[in-house]
Amino acid sequence: MVTRRDFLKLSGAAAGTAALAATGAVASSGSTSKLDPARVGVLTDLTLCIGCRRCEWACAQQNQLPYGPLESCDDQSLLANARRPDAEHYTVINRYPAPTWREQPLDVKVQCMHCEHPACVSACIVGALEKNPMGPVTYDPWKCIGCRYCMVACPFQIPAYEYHNALTPKVMKCTMCPERTLEKQQLPACAEICPREAILFGRRDELLELAHERLSQHPDRYHPEVYGEHEVGGTSWLLIADRPVTECGIPELSDQSPAALTETIQHGIFRGFSGPLMIFGLLSVLMKSSTDRRRREDWDGEDQRDGEDKHG
């Protein structure tokens, strides 16, 4: 007799085996393989950022978010407390004080990093969030059902939700302006307004090359690390700064996308329909054996009864 506990144990082991078998193959052939080699990205050189917040203004204007007059950006008091992007701000600048009076404070621009292998896209059950092969992580409000799994999944805690909007709430996050960059060959709104070209838009591979060039040319000016080159499997948005950005509000993350493990297990199980086949095959074997045994027991019982009858 197979108990419920035995069944769960067995099926768990089967799934585990299937997952392990498929780990290597799936991890390398994830959604990253669909990416275009000429995909675009943005490099923020935080040593050039002065915290003028013009990017916040231009972003709000571009994306029909609320914004005040241009001079309202001069209000530096907002920089005193760390903020996070929300439903009305796709990007914010946070200021982190200088370690010594001789240095400058570091202004850190925060927005969607447009991961190469995004956890939000992986978590989205309806495909409303998608990784464009050219770089941006795009969002389609028509597909979105508002489950907000993306908000939980994002390692940078970027997607925000229009909680105030009762009827047609949307997930809100930086778009990397594909309507400007991919369609019109323009720069993203933030990059265009940036007075010091601290925000550079271009091909990701060229930006990476440029970032490393700057790090090696001015080792005195930069912390020798390009954030986003490897973090969470790489991001389209890259950061360089004079100190580790992980000391300035940017999370310290492993080189593997959080989606890699879950996708490995999920895709592994269902690869070539092997998982379901295995489970249902196992089930059928179990059912067959249990019915066989019951039938045999029934026959044995009948034989015994027959004998007893004869003797009786």
């Binding site: 400058q104 323009q186 070209e197």
Partner: peptide, 24 residues
């Protein structure tokens, strides 16, 4: 500002990088 030229700042970037270095 052309998206293609990453190494040479355009006029706006050049001015601001120049001025703000000292002003900061």
């Amino acid at each position: 500002r052309a998206a293609s030229d990453l190494r040479q700042p355009a006029l706006k970037g050049a001015y601001h990088r120049q001025c703000i270095n000292c002003h900061l």
